[in-house]
């Protein structure tokens, strides 16, 4: 799923405003900045106070929080880290990014232990591997608030984290169906491809087909094909899909290579298609800008991690936060593509 890790969440969660209201109701006491030096295991201690106007006035100055994640050279991960870092700085946290060179979960565990040793008031961790679950539980049991991001933790796992923020493939699949249905005027055939038949891509493809059936019953959605991750082979397969049905007017891919796959196939087969794929990488944004691809789904990787910091603040200030937050993944079209180029520029990726 890591190849899909691009996206934007248009608005931050309204956690702070909700938290402020809760603060007023619960009148929880708030620690002063003086206790910032005691950073270990203070995560769940109340640190909020309420101003005369009822707004939250919770000092988190000097509180140590960490983003513990893999693949530090990966641009997607860098966007995530930037969301965390920039929001932590805005709020006055002492935020640290701890990232490993590769995706080996053992290295993440080592980084997490390092953070605990050095003192942590909270951590943001993408739980991309089940091997990380015991560490999340251990840290939570020690009173360190954990916010998990991007990958959802199965309901069966009780890890004690405060919040799990992740995109919802069913939501963006349905959104893609609405956009394609509208673009092709509610008629024609749509091809669907997946990088692989994994649960997330399956959910996106299935929700796409279901939403299309419901909203545009005259549109025929072909059964999903596996395009794989090798670009040349993916284009070749997409051309074959196009040859199989000359009524195909649009294509939806649930993987980050999809925009390039379908733009290449449309070019080779000399077909005019409405294409929606995943991820706001620069090549994909260029395809949107040029009009070869109608839209890409933007998973909110920057916002997820900024909101995770907001959630940490709320927790540290003694607020209740939602246990699970589904992050909206908007479409990037020619209308808003420049915003995403700006975001990539801003995060240096």
């Amino acid at each position: 799923m890591w190849e899909q890790d691009r996206g934007r969440w248009p608005r931050r969660l309204t956690l702070l405003s909700v938290a402020a209201a809760l603060v007023a109701l619960t009148a929880t006491g708030c620690g002063s900045s003086d206790d910032s030096g005691d950073s270990a295991s203070t995560g769940t201690q109340s640190a909020a106070s309420t101003t005369a106007s009822g707004e939250k006035d919770c000092s988190i100055e000097g509180k140590k929080i960490q983003f513990v994640a893999p693949l530090k050279s990966n641009p997607t991960m860098q966007v995530m880290a930037a969301g965390f870092e920039q929001r932590a700085e805005e709020l006055g946290f002492d935020g640290t990014v701890l990232m490993s060179d590769d995706a080996d979960p053992q290295k993440i565990l080592a980084l997490g232990q390092q953070a605990m040793t050095q003192g942590s008031d909270g951590m943001v961790i993408p739980p991309y591997d089940a091997a990380l679950y015991p560490f999340i539980k251990q840290a939570s049991d020690q009173g360190i608030p954990i916010i998990t991001t991007h990958s959802s933790v199965p309901d069966s796992e009780d890890l004690g984290m405060k919040q799990d923020i992740h995109p919802d493939p069913a939501q963006y699949g349905a959104e893609a169906a609405r956009a394609i249905g509208e673009q092709i005027g509610g008629r024609g055939t749509v091809a669907v491809t997946q990088g692989g038949f994994n649960p997330i891509e399956n959910a996106a493809a299935e929700s796409f087909a279901a939403a299309m059936k419901e909203q545009y019953p005259d549109v025929k959605v072909l059964k999903s094909q596996e395009e794989g991750f090798e670009p040349a082979a993916a284009i070749s397969k997409a051309v074959s899909v196009l040859q199989s049905d000359d009524t195909i007017a649009a294509a939806y891919s649930t993987t980050g290579g999809g925009p390039k796959t379908w733009a290449g196939a449309a070019d080779q087969a000399k077909r005019d298609l409405t294409i929606i794929g995943m991820d706001y990488t620069r090549p994909n944004l260029d395809l949107v800008r040029s009009g070869k691809v109608y839209a890409v789904v933007a998973q909110p990787i920057y916002e997820e991690h900024a909101d995770a910091v907001d959630a940490l603040k709320a927790v540290i200030c003694g607020e209740e936060v939602e246990a699970e937050v589904s992050a909206e993944s908007p479409l990037v079209t020619q209308d808003n593509v420049e915003e995403y180029f700006d975001l990539l520029d801003r995060t240096g990726t």
């Binding site: 284009i235 051309v239 196009l242 040859q243 199989s244």
Partner: peptide, 20 residues
């Protein structure tokens, strides 16, 4: 099964793929 299998675009795409 499907005559468009031998359409030029498909032939070219296949040949291009096997070229690599």
């Amino acid at each position: 099964v499907n005559p468009s299998f031998v359409a030029w675009a498909n032939i070219e795409s296949n040949v291009r793929t096997i070229a690599f």
